[in-house]
Amino acid sequence: MTERELSKVAATRRGVHDRLAALDPGRPPTYDPRKTLRLRVEFARQIKRRRTQVAFGLLIVLPLIIAIAFQIGGAADSNAPQLVGLATSGGFNFALFTEFASVGFLLVVVVALFCGDTVASEASWASLRYLLAQPVPRSRLLRQKLAVAGTLCVAANVVLPVWAFIVGGLFFGWSPARSPIGGSFGSGASTLRLLIVVVFICGQLFIVAALAFLLSVSVDNPLGAVGGAVMLVVVSSILDQITALDPYRHYLPTHYNYAWVDTLSSPIRYDDMIRGTGLALVYGAIFLGIAFLRFDRKDITS
């Protein structure tokens, strides 16, 4: 390539130099920290990412796969847990079963992905330092990122049961929820229960979200943040299986993950769900508090 061709590629047109030459001395910018990194902007940054699209794609495909599996393989045999056995009885039960199947791992991974990746991936792309030098105030950056990641998490938590309800309804009919302890609820009561389930699970996953977010601001490697959060959840779930750890295991972050099945009692038993929510608030507040404190002072070397 000749020098002449090279400079064409470089393509800095003469006009730029003229334009620069004609510039006034700069005027102070109209900067307002409260307008930096608005939610709309952060959404645009995140929504177009392949990982966001793949995660939601998975959540859309999963109920279809389960429904087709039930359709081909027939209903669960009588030895299966009753929540599984009831899965094909209608949209509501199918949605509940899908939640039961996903809350232990799939939703954990999705939430850890959205919250663990959000700051760490910026660090790994080196775009974090440019955002901070604009400057986006640090706690504002965390707040906006948390708001967007949190919204994506809630969206995932709403999309899964609602879509599972629709898929279950199309495959198995629209009958109201039936409980493993016998009896069924009306459509209104079923909807209310499903709503409580979604809200409670969102609360429980707040722990995962906060932990992933803490790791995300602590490390420069998205895999470390997401993987670390998932790994701690898995370890906590394993420890929770050891009944010898009573009563200490009641304070494990995953202990109340399935307390939402109490919505299938009549009347709904709120005790464990209240405990789980309280525990989630404590863990979440601690993790997020550390995240904000650390990031506020952190030397950005990525």
Partner: peptide, 11 residues
Amino acid sequence: DGVVSAATGDA
């Protein structure tokens, strides 16, 4: 059968 077991989904 008073409650649904959180561990198994059974009554």
